[in-house]
Amino acid sequence: MGKRVTVTIRPKDGLRDPQGSAVRDALVALGYDGVSTVHVGKTIDLLLDGPLADAPAGELRSRVEEMCRTLLVNSVIETYTVALGPEDTAPAGSVRSGNKTEAEGSADAAGRSL
């Protein structure tokens, strides 16, 4: 049986988001006056099988967060959450990616959740 993990990536708080602003302006122009802010992010679905799919939730989460730090997320501009299956929506966070700061690890992630 495969397993689905969903990574949701958002622009970091405080970062100007011209794309989000343009979408908000378009919605307001269409008459949706109550839309005050829009942020455009992305969703990455990982369908897993093999040992990774069978790994305990804690280990799987830590592996996916490693993927986020290594490739999926740029912590200079983005934050993310990791959801294991439909029912698990515990937040991950804003971990610096790249070679330099990997040692900071997921403790920092937990402290800077969305």
């Binding site: 970062l15 100007r16 011209p18 794309q19 343009a22 740029n74 200079v76 501009i77 990616s97 790249g98 070679n99 330099k100």
Partner: peptide, 17 residues
């Protein structure tokens, strides 16, 4: 180079559409 961590910062979508 920014993504590789060889330079600081990031390049994002232009302001101004």
């Amino acid at each position: 180079l920014c993504e590789a961590g060889l330079l600081e910062g990031a390049l994002t979508r232009n302001q101004g559409l």
